Simulated scan of single mutants.
Amino acid sequence: MRYAIHFTPPAHDPLALAAAQWLGRNAFSGEAVEPPAIRGIGLHDIAYHTAVPRRYGFQATLKAPFRLPADVSEAMLLRHLMRFAGAHDPFELPHLEVVRLGNFFGLAPAVPCETMRFLAASVVQEFDAFRAPLSEAELERCDPDSLSATQFANLHRWGHPYVMEEFRFHMALTGPLSTTEMPLFEKTLREYFAPYLRHPIEIANLALFVEEETGAPFQVHSLHPMGRVAARRIA
């Protein structure tokens, strides 16, 4: 079993529901969702090109998937995550936009957010004690030969290349695309998500995701509200 600490909007948030429909799976319920009917792209094409993010669910990675050490229990992880989340105040992330990230598309803040960068770094550091060392096979799957020196150091120190100064908040919407496919998907994603990206995003919880067995889809295990109870916004 593997765990991951992410940000994801609440289950009934309009953006979460729209993303679940686009990806074809609800990460809270684990149930399949029929992709939207979009002119110019068939349902099978959408399903094929969203297979990678569909498995991981709609989320922004803070602590990449990890296994627990033999002397650490899930209950210990949950207690620590609850305390950690409660010690950090909620905040607003600048509104998101569809961006190209290498050979795939995702949602990312229109402007950098140092509060988010600090939170992500804190999560990586705080929960490293809950991470069993990567196996040789897991290290190889990260393709270390393709990493920069900093990314390589991050992989061996923190278990993931894209942390600390290499971190960029993003919520993946596609898997790898060819250069000929990118223009159509970019146009489609901008039109589809435009109604849900008009306002800042409230970062008010940390989500624990679980992969029950190797290769299984990740699913939301629990949401952990940030900040003191009295300070939490009541929707």
Rank of each mutant, 00 (worst) to 15 (best):
M1L: 13
Y3H: 14
Y3W: 15
A4Q: 01
A4P: 01
I5R: 11
H6N: 12
T8M: 06
P9L: 07
A11T: 06
H12V: 05
P14V: 03
P14Q: 03
A20N: 04
A20V: 05
Q21M: 09
W22D: 01
G24R: 03
N26E: 06
E31Y: 01
A32M: 08
I38K: 02
I38M: 08
R39K: 12
G40M: 08
G40Q: 06
H44K: 14
D45H: 09
A47I: 10
R55I: 00
R55C: 02
Y56H: 11
G57T: 06
A60R: 09
K63G: 10
P65G: 08
P65M: 03
L68R: 10
P69V: 11
A70Y: 06
V72P: 00
S73W: 06
S73T: 15
E74R: 14
M76V: 10
L81E: 10
A87P: 00
H88L: 12
D89L: 12
D89Y: 04
P90F: 07
L93C: 03
H95T: 02
H95Y: 13
H95W: 10
L96A: 10
E97S: 11
V98C: 12
V99A: 15
A108F: 04
A108N: 04
C113L: 03
T115G: 09
R117T: 15
L119N: 06
S122L: 15
S122I: 00
V124Y: 09
E126N: 13
D128F: 00
A132L: 05
P133T: 08
S135W: 02
A137M: 05
E138N: 08
L139M: 10
R141N: 09
P144M: 09
S148N: 02
Q151M: 07
F152Y: 12
F152D: 04
L155P: 04
H156C: 05
H156R: 15
W158E: 01
E166W: 01
R168H: 10
F169N: 03
M171C: 04
A172P: 01
A172S: 15
L173W: 09
G175H: 03
P176I: 02
L177W: 05
T180L: 11
T180N: 07
M182D: 00
E186Y: 07
K187P: 00
L189M: 11
E191C: 13
E191K: 14
Y196W: 13
R198I: 08
E202P: 10
E202T: 12
N205T: 12
A207W: 09
A207M: 14
F209I: 00
V210H: 06
F218M: 01
V220D: 00
V220C: 02
P225R: 04
M226S: 07
G227V: 03
G227K: 06
R228H: 11
V229D: 14
V229T: 14
A231P: 00
R232K: 08
I234Q: 11
